[in-house]
């Protein structure tokens, strides 16, 4: 590690941020424009040194940072990976981020890591497991975690709790906050043929510490029903912007991330998406 002391933490503003990609390092330093904070995938900064950590340390001097884990597998049936949890604690101690989040999903089983956010059924059993894992994470890392709602493509017959009741009960049991991914809400609602606004109406908005917006791809299933696929590889579509406006009109402004991980655009395209979020936030401020 470059420096043992944690950097000073900048508080997270109710403003647009972007998922940080090294390709944009110089652009961000030259003129970040509407982008007021950055989110990093924790796993990309779990090396011992070199450019990734040097860049992150440099950016953290100027920008509030959100540390977003993508590999802890909180929804695992089995125990959390203790080594990985220790790495996460080490990174969070070193970085001192303004926000720290993970997913309602699983990605590891036994010794295999599948590098995707896989779905879990919503039952009393999985609720107990997820709550136990979040307790363990928050106790180990020593701070509150935000839990992100997933994009889902199918339903588990065994689910007998709604996703919203599941999330609300997890926050009640663990004291964790929520990361509301509005694109995931839209994708899941279209895929499950439910009403995305009804989801927002029922969602525990008071627990939301951060919002995600991102792009998706459109397809159909074998019966011709619409099938949206969360891709983080395109511009945010108008119906998702409308759902976002609907959400923040109810919740008030929140830190809002433009999430673009694949088919990376140039900085001006990303900054334009952030400007759109800034405009929407100004309307509810």
């Amino acid at each position: 590690m470059l420096d043992a002391s944690a950097p000073q933490q900048h508080p997270m503003p109710n403003a647009p941020g972007v998922g940080y990609k090294p390709q944009h390092f110089q652009d961000i330093l030259a003129d970040a424009g509407p982008v007021k904070w950055l989110e990093v995938h924790a796993e990309n900064y779990m090396g011992q040194g070199g450019r990734p950590l040097a860049q992150l340390r440099h950016l953290a001097e100027t920008f509030p940072i959100s540390c977003h884990g993508v590999g802890l597998s909180i929804g695992s049936e089995g125990d959390l990976d203790a080594d990985h949890l220790a790495r996460l604690k080490h990174l969070v101690d070193w970085l001192n981020p303004a926000l720290f989040s993970e997913h309602l999903a699983w990605s590891s089983h036994n010794s295999h890591f599948l590098n995707d956010l896989l779905p879990l059924p919503y039952t009393e059993e999985t609720l107990a497991t997820v709550a136990r894992h979040i307790d363990q994470v928050q106790e180990t890392v020593g701070r509150q975690m935000l839990l992100e709602n997933p994009s889902t493509y199918l339903a588990f017959d065994q689910s007998d709790i709604s996703e919203i009741d599941f999330l609300a009960e997890v926050t009640r049991r663990t004291g964790c906050g929520l990361l509301l991914d509005v694109n995931n809400v839209f994708v899941s609602a279209i895929n499950q043929q439910t009403d995305p606004r009804a989801y927002i109406d029922a969602y525990p908005l008071a627990s939301v510490g951060e919002i995600h917006l991102g792009g998706h791809d459109a397809d159909h299933d074998e019966a011709g029903a619409p099938l949206l696929i969360d891709s983080h590889g395109a511009e945010i579509v108008d119906p998702v912007w409308a759902l976002y406006a609907y959400t923040i009109a109810k919740s008030g402004p929140r830190p809002t991330l433009i999430e673009w991980d694949n088919n990376l655009p140039d900085w001006s395209t990303l900054a334009a998406e952030a400007t759109r979020a800034k405009t929407a936030l100004a309307e509810v401020a």
């Binding site: 339903a155 588990f156 074998e222 029903a225 696929i229």
Partner: peptide, 22 residues
């Protein structure tokens, strides 16, 4: 078994989304 489309039929292509993503 136990994974479904919104029409209640067993999932096929919807499961393949996860296969493809991985």
């Amino acid at each position: 078994m136990g994974l479904s489309n919104p029409d209640g039929r067993p999932a096929q292509k919807r499961f393949d989304v996860y296969r493809n993503n991985v």
